[in-house]
Design a binder for these strands. Structure first.
Lengths: 246, 246
DNA sequence: CGCCGATTTGACTCAGATCAAGGTTTGTGG
DNA sequence: CCACAAACCTTGATCTGAGTCAAATCGGCG
C-alpha cells in the first residue's frame, strides 16, 4: 500500500451506464443503446484543482461539462470587474450552456475544491444528436432546467429579504443532497461564506449574522462549514412554501 | 375606406423569408431552403391583447413563441405569490424556453400591449430538426443567448446600485432599438413604471426619482413614456462600460 | 366634467452595508 | 513540533441607499 501511487478513483473513466450519477446527469432517461453511444463521446474525466478555471469568460465554447466529483462555481463578470456567482454545480450537474449563444463563454467556471469533470465535446455531441434521437430532447430538457433555475435565482435576488434568501439557499442545498442520496439534514457547505454572500447578493457579515440567528432560533446548527438542519418546516415557512404552519 | 373592415397587418401570415425581423429572429443565419422549411411549421401569427396571458406558469409547453409586434413580459412566480419580471420581449425576440425543462412552463407570459406572436409548435419543430441540420444549432444558439441574458440580469440584481440598474436598463433598450433600425436615442417605453421597478428589483418611487435625477443631470429627457437620451456616454460610464471619461 | 389609474414628490424609517476589531483554523517552513 | 502567516469567520457600532407611507398631480377616457 505504501509503494503504490495513490490514484483518485474519481478521475478514472467510468461508463455512463455504470456511473452512479446516471439518473441526475446527462444520461437521465436514456436507454442502454443510447448510453453506449454517449460513452463514445465523453472524454476521460478531467481533474481540476481548487481555484482552477474550467473555462473563462471569452473562451471559445468547445464542450459541455458534467461534474463528477467536487464542486464548480460559475460567475458572471461585469464590465467594471465585479462578479456575481450564478451557480454552484454539484456532482451530476452540467455547466457550460452559457457559451452556446455566440460560441464563447459568458462566464467563468472555477473549482471550489479539487474536482473531477466529464467533458462532452460539442462537435461530437452534435454529430451524435443526428443518430440518437433522444439526445436532442435531452439537450432541450437540460437547457430548460438551466433557464428555470436562473429564474428562481432572479426571484430570490429581486424579491426576497436576506433571511428568505439564506433559507431558500439551505433548502436548495438540502434538496440536492437528497437527490444524491446523501443526508438532507446534515451536510457540509462546499463554499466559503464569501461565496454564499456573493451568490445571494449580500455582505459576508450578513450571512454570518443570519447563520448565528438561525442557530439561535434552533432552526439549524452551524459548525464552521458543517450544517445540521433541525427544523426543515420552519425554513420552508420562511420562503413561503407552506401557507400556514406545519 | 370607411366600409372596409380594418385589418391589422401584423396578424397576417408573412413568410419568414419576407419578414423584416428575419435577422433578429429565429431565421437568423438560415438559408432560403431552410427558411422555406421553417415556414411550414410556423403558425399564423396570434393576436393577443394587453394583459392577456400567452401562457401561464404550469401550462404544458406546446410551442416556442416569437414576438412579431408589440411586447410581451415574462415573470417568475414565487410560492408565496410574489412575481419577478424576468424579461421584456420585443419584436423578433423569442420566449417559451422556460418550459423545456420538465415540459411545463415555469413562468407567466403577458402582453404589455396588443401584440402579435408567431407560434412554433414543438412537435413540428422537433421533426424539422432532423431534416434541417441548421435548426438544431439555431436552437442551441437561442438557448445560450437566453442563459447569457439571464446572467446579465443576475449581475444587475446582485451587484448594482439602483442608479446603475436604471442606466443599464436604458442602454439595453437603446441597443435593442438600434438592432431594429429604430432611433437609439429616442423611443417610448413599452411598460409602466411599476414593471420597470419590478424588473430592476426596486420600488416604483425609486424609478421615478431616478428618472427625475437623470433628467436633472441632462442625461436624458423624460416625458411620460417617451425617453430621449441626451448623453449616452454618461450612461455608459455609469455602468462601467468605459474606463475613464469619453 | 369627473373618476381612476399612473406617476411624482416629500418625509420618515429601516434592512442591510460598511467599518473596525478580534478570534479561529489551516497550512508552511524551520 | 512550534511559530507565524494567511484565510476565513464572527461580532459590534455606525451609516446610508432605497423602501415605505402619505399626499398631490397628471392624463386619459367614458
Amino acid at each position: 500500500m505504501s509503494t503504490l501511487k495513490r490514484i483518485d478513483v474519481n478521475h478514472l473513466k467510468v461508463r455512463c451506464l455504470d456511473c452512479n450519477l446516471r439518473e441526475l446527469c446527462f444520461p437521465h432517461g436514456m436507454d442502454e443503446d443510447e448510453l453506449t453511444n454517449l460513452d463514445a463521446v465523453v472524454d476521460q474525466p478531467k481533474p481540476i484543482h481548487k481555484n482552477d478555471f474550467l473555462y473563462r469568460d471569452g473562451d471559445e465554447t468547445v464542450a459541455l461539462y458534467a461534474v463528477r466529483s467536487g464542486c464548480v462555481k460559475t460567475m458572471a463578470e461585469s464590465p467594471n470587474g465585479e462578479e456575481q456567482i450564478v451557480g454552484f454545480h454539484m456532482p451530476g450537474e452540467l455547466l457550460g450552456l452559457d457559451g452556446f449563444g455566440e460560441g464563447v463563454h459568458t462566464c467563468n467556471a472555477v473549482a471550489l475544491e479539487t474536482s473531477s469533470v466529464c467533458e462532452l465535446p460539442l462537435d461530437k455531441l452534435e454529430v451524435l444528436c443526428h443518430s440518437v434521437p433522444g439526445l436532442q430532447k435531452q439537450m432541450r430538457r437540460i437547457m430548460g432546467k438551466e433557464v428555470s433555475s436562473d429564474h428562481r435565482l432572479l426571484l430570490l435576488l429581486g424579491k426576497m429579504t436576506s433571511e428568505e434568501r439564506l433559507a431558500s439557499f439551505l433548502l436548495s442545498l438540502s434538496g440536492r443532497m437528497l437527490e444524491r442520496h446523501w443526508k438532507e439534514d446534515e451536510f457540509n457547505l462546499m463554499m466559503p461564506r464569501q461565496d454564499i454572500a456573493n451568490y445571494l447578493g449580500m455582505a459576508v457579515e450578513t450571512v454570518s449574522r443570519l447563520f448565528a440567528s438561525f442557530q439561535n432560533d434552533r432552526i439549524i446548527e452551524v459548525n464552521r462549514r458543517h450544517i445540521t438542519i433541525l427544523d426543515m418546516d420552519r425554513l420552508k415557512i420562511m420562503v413561503g412554501e407552506c401557507e400556514s404552519g406545519k
